[in-house]
Design a protein around this nucleic acid. Structure first.
Lengths: 150, 150
DNA sequence: CGTGAAATCGTCATGAA
DNA sequence: TTCATGACGATTTCACG
């Protein structure tokens, strides 16, 4: 995991369709060498997957909300993770420090649909309350840039 | 934007390295037809980009925090977006409804580094306070699944 | 890590439904 | 419009130095 790897990751984050030859030209390596480095980055799990970034609103998912979940028991268990993962509208789930115990990121097609999801959250064992924060506008969403760029 | 498009998006979100021939086999189309559909999905901006999902901790970004920003003025302006975008540790920024006006998602290498970023937030015009929520564990992070899957 | 060859894939033109 | 087919060029991929 040297500086060249970090530059490759930064380039691939911007555009994963770049040819190995192009990447090689950018970092001063041959296509074969780049191929081998990227293969190892995948193998090590540093590159988790290659995906497409889909505009949520194009799928009708125009509502974005962050919800803080309060509870009367510790929710940092796998069973909680499973229960949240079973709700497709939940895009992210984190165990957090503070007055709430869980923070989830939710995308729905409407506020009515959001209400249905909040109801499902309440049905999870131990949940005593939720605090929803509605997003009015997303300034930006981007990957964590390699510390190299800082 | 029909059902086949949604299935293609779902497949590409899981693995954007799939060959057009493979995608075609999955949805019952020829490689050429899939190529044309994906090209249009990109053209329309429904597919924003093709990227790699990089494990943040592999880059040393082990700290994740959500920060609510309070202000004494309306921060939903482009100048605010620009100021936040200039901080590389800020992965997301949303204008939100509630007692706070902005919610940001921040990744840093350490809590010391987080402190530096919080200081930068305070230097933005109108900011009167921040409320940080530290993530202890991330259950999961995934893209918004097409409503088809629900 | 570079080179080169072989297999695979992306890409486009053509024609048909 | 949308799709299938076929052919060409580019790219991935791998063995070897």
């Amino acid at each position: 995991m040297d500086d060249i790897d970090r530059r490759l990751l930064a380039l691939l984050q911007q555009d994963a369709t770049l040819a190995y030859a192009t990447l090689g030209q950018a970092v001063g390596l041959s296509a074969g060498a780049v191929h081998e480095r990227v293969r190892k980055l995948r193998e090590r799990g540093i590159i988790r997957s290659t995906t497409v970034d889909v505009d949520p609103s194009a799928l009708g998912l125009g509502i974005l909300a962050f919800v803080l979940i309060e509870s009367n028991a510790w929710l940092g268990e796998r069973s909680t993770a499973d229960a949240l993962a079973a709700i497709p509208e939940v895009c992210e789930a984190h165990v957090v420090a503070g007055s709430a115990s869980i923070l989830v990121k939710i995308r729905t097609t409407s506020t009515e649909n959001l209400q249905v999801v909040l109801k499902k959250l309440f049905e999870i064992d131990g949940v005593t309350g939720t605090h929803a924060i509605l997003s009015l506008e997303t300034f930006f969403e981007r990957p964590a840039g390699p510390p190299t760029e800082r």
